[in-house]
Design a protein around this nucleic acid. Sequence first.
DNA 1: CCTTCGTTCCGCCATG
DNA 2: CACATGGCGGAACGAA
Length: 328
Amino acid sequence: MNLVPVHEVVVLALDGVIAADLAIPAEVLSRTRLLDGQCPYRIRVAALRPNVDAGIFTLRTPWRLDALVEADTILVPGLADPTMPTPPAVLRALREAAARGARIASICVGAFVLAEAGLLQGRRATTHWAAAHELARLYPDVHVDPNVLFVDNGQILTSAGAAAGLDLCLHLVRRDHGSAVAADTARATVMPLERSGGQAQYINYLPPNPDNASLDPLLRWLDANYDRHLTIAKIAEHAAVSTRTLNRQFHDQVGSTPIVWLRAIRIRRAQCLLETTNEPIDAVARLVGFGSTNTFRDHFTDLVGANPTSYRRSFKGSSTPTPAAGKI
DNA sequence: CCTTCGTTCCGCCATG
DNA sequence: CACATGGCGGAACGAA
């Protein structure tokens, strides 16, 4: 394979930074590996001064704002006080980076910093649900949507709470390196590739990976039709290609096979049902498209590492009613 | 756990 | 020639 230039990622650490917002994307991207084992991202944490107040602790980093000049992607974590004015030098650096074409993504209430820099003008954006109203009030020209995990405007991205920062990062990995690499990253960080729980919980205005995305419409279709009794023949028919081509394209673009991919969708959906409903296991099996409860159990245990019953029990035990909805 | 039988998928080669 | 597609066959897989 050819050499992929290292993608420079800079995480902006301002005083009052929410540690999780900063750490989660840094961790996810630094754990990303291409198929040849290389990490495609170089992560740096940039701050105005060596010591940054991170609330519970003080964070120390060798990099300053000038790191933003070389950044391909800038991540802006949330601050404990979102409405606190951002230092002018930071705003200037962000605007310059944006003008240069750098990709800029905010986590949680980091969207306030982007808005203050004027980067969200006239755009759709999201932020932590509890702060969405305030963001919309302060910046009337920003279309705030509190109901999605993240919004992708191409160059500018915003995401909801810290957990959604994970979803955003996996989305970036998918955009940059395709579904296969993103799936690996998801596995490495022990999180579902895409949050199911519903339909499209994110807004995406760009095709994920322009030169390698011919399967994308089909992947979305599978996301919506996983519960049907699908065979390779039917999937291929829907995609209007032969089964041979379907298999080949999956291999090339997803790094997987149609059935394995479909099964992953079904298991993810099953996890969600087990977490949020009291449907019996065999009902769950059928709802997510498995023909037999036994095979469902087998695959579930295989992918999740726990059988469906104990998985559900571990969730009931921690008594979080609709955990996903609350966090977003 | 095993067995059976349909399904999947990949190498190979032909075709456009 | 480079490239994408598709048919075929059989080994491996998986549903029940």
